[in-house]
Every structure is written in structure tokens, then in C-alpha cells.
């Protein structure tokens, strides 16, 4: 079984892209399983189960960073999808933590960005873009050709090694190259690793100390004027 992790800001078209991928996998005789990871609300699992009759699930990350939640549940999820007879496990995640990456070595990492989002977005999404394999640019039907090309250039400035694929996810235009990327992805194994380095360890705020001002905290702290530093006890 293969693993595809699809991340991107809200409403960029992740589900719309995955819907076309599910359809094309099915046309090629392959079964997709779908897992949605969201902070507090999602209904894609029910929609896609109804539409395609495929195995689907969702997980609410709640208090956890959604990217870390993804890592926690992925082992179980691969087993679940395997038992359900799936050929590909598609994971959709909101990727709300812009310091972490949700991708796994040995899986295919897709980041979905919309061409309508403004030219600075690629500079703001951090490892979610730079550690992806493919940046899928949606809503190309809503912008001029010139803007589409400049948006592509902005992505390549930040992430020169990431392949850019432009799609219209309403009409399913440009989806075939994504299927080719999935075809070239190796099968998932029992020992997969989170891609990239997680951000520096927790600060005392994370463990529940709520005082305002770095002077009240320990571990990695950050004054306004200086870089973060380690303040030991």
C-alpha cells in the first residue's frame, strides 16, 4: 500500500483534488482509503464514503498539533487501511502548525495552494511547502495566465526542488500528473519517519505556566529584542 499525505490551508481545494484522485484511482482498478485529520470539525469522511463507497475515517487533533497528531495515528491508520484492502491511503490534513511538516519519508507529500491566495502565501507556509514533494496549485481558472505564472515563480523561489502542478480542481484538469507521482511512490513500510526536524522543544507555556513575559519561563524563551535562547533552571 502507498501513502499520500495532502496538506494545505483551509479551503484551498484539498478535498476537491483528492476527489479526482480517488476517481482516477478507481478507474485504474485501485481502491483508496481516506483519513481526515482536523482540529475540531470535518465531514469529508462522510461525504467521500457516500460518494465513492470507500473506507474513510476522521480524527480530531484537539489539543495536539495536527501534524504531530498525524504522526501519532499514522501507524494505526496504515494497518486499518491495509485491512480494508486499500491500495493507497490518502491523508488530508489542515496542516495548521506552520512550523512542522506533516510529511513522511517514503510517502508522497502534496501541499495544496490556491492561485487566488496572493503572492506572499508561498513565503508564509514554511515546511508545509518546502518539505513537500509536489505543490498542487488550484483555482487556476480564477486568475490570469500571467498571475498563475508569477505565483509558480514565487513557489519556486522558496522551494526550488518542489515540483509545481497546476490544476482546476472543479473540472479535474491537470490531475493526471498527480496520479503519475503516486505511481512512482514506493510502498509504505513498518518503519517510516516524519520528514524534517520538529521545532525546538516545548517551552514552559506548553506545559501550562501562563504568566506573561519571558522572565517567568524556562527552557527556550524569546525576548522581544533578541533571538530565542535557552534559560535553564
Amino acid at each position: 500500500m502507498k501513502l499520500v499525505i495532502c496538506a494545505g490551508p483551509a479551503t484551498t481545494g484539498k478535498t476537491a483534488v483528492l476527489r479526482h484522485i480517488i476517481k482516477k484511482l478507481r478507474d485504474g482498478g485501485q481502491l483508496a482509503a481516506f483519513l481526515k485529520i482536523d482540529v475540531q470539525y470535518a465531514e469529508e469522511d462522510e461525504l467521500l464514503a457516500r460518494e465513492f463507497g470507500i473506507p474513510t475515517r476522521k480524527v480530531y487533533s484537539g489539543e495536539l498539533c495536527p501534524d504531530h497528531c498525524n504522526v501519532m495515528v499514522l501507524g494505526d491508520a496504515l494497518q486499518w487501511a491495509g485491512k480494508a484492502g486499500a491500495d493507497v491511503l490518502l491523508v488530508e490534513t489542515a496542516g495548521l502548525c506552520l512550523r512542522c511538516s506533516p510529511y513522511v519519508d517514503g510517502g508522497l507529500g502534496l501541499v495544496v495552494l490556491e492561485a487566488t491566495s496572493g503572492m506572499n502565501l508561498p513565503l508564509k507556509v514554511g515546511p508545509m511547502l518546502s518539505l513537500a514533494d509536489v505543490a498542487v496549485v488550484t483555482k487556476i481558472d480564477r486568475v490570469s495566465q500571467a498571475e498563475r505564472e508569477v505565483f509558480r515563480a514565487r513557489i519556486q523561489e522558496v522551494a526550488p526542488a518542489v515540483r509545481v502542478r497546476e490544476v482546476n480542481a472543479l473540472h479535474g484538469i491537470g490531475i493526471d500528473p498527480l496520479l503519475e507521482h503516486i505511481r512512482q511512490t514506493p510502498h509504505a513500510t513498518d518503519h517510516m519517519l516524519l520528514r524534517g526536524n520538529p521545532p525546538v522543544g516545548t517551552c514552559t507555556i506548553c506545559v501550562g505556566k501562563k504568566e506573561v513575559g519571558w522572565q517567568s519561563h524556562f527552557g527556550v524563551v524569546r525576548p522581544l529584542e533578541n533571538q530565542a535562547f535557552y534559560r535553564g533552571e
Binding site: 506572499n120 486568475v143 508569477v150
Partner: peptide, 25 residues
């Protein structure tokens, strides 16, 4: 080159920077 029916840009860049980037690529 396609000149679309769009009559608005969504891009938040200045004209100069936008055209320079487009010229480069």
C-alpha cells in the same frame, strides 16, 4: 500567451515587481 476575460488582478504585488518577476521567468 492567453489574455483572459478577467478584469481584476488578485495579486497583492506592485506592478513593477510583478512585471519584473514575469519577465524573468
Amino acid at each position: 500567451a492567453l489574455i483572459t476575460q478577467h478584469t481584476t488582478f488578485l495579486s497583492d504585488m506592485p506592478v513593477q515587481g510583478f512585471l519584473e518577476t514575469h519577465a524573468r521567468i
